[in-house]
Amino acid sequence: MHIDFTDWSMGLIGGLFIGAASALFLLGLGRVAGISGITGDLLMGNKNGRFLENLAFVAGIVLCPLIYAQVVAAPVIQITESLPYLIVGGLLVGFGTRLGNGCTSGHGVCGLSRLSVRSFIATGTFMVVAALVVAFLKTRLG
């Protein structure tokens, strides 16, 4: 096990930004900043009257790294998975987060901080399953 000071301190700072963003979304709009929920809501169009604010939030997440890359430095993004993994993984993440009403942001950040029992169960489940899948793939593929 290695602990790199710069790694975890940047993680903590980044986490504070994510928490501040979620806090702003709650205190400003009265909504839970769950990415899967907002993206799913966006797909419903404007029947709920939230289309533009959903779009603005998602646009912020999509465009911020591009701006960061121009102003500061391009972040490293390593993806080694092959096409079937990307497709199956994407389908599972999309379907699963909608079925379970949340992802790392909705259940993990917003739900846990609210002490929601549903979110504790969801977060525990997806963390354990994800770790098991990683361990399984490693033993199978070496």
Partner: peptide, 11 residues
Amino acid sequence: GAAMFGAGWGL
């Protein structure tokens, strides 16, 4: 749902 999401996340 959380289990499916976790599986995709781990992949």
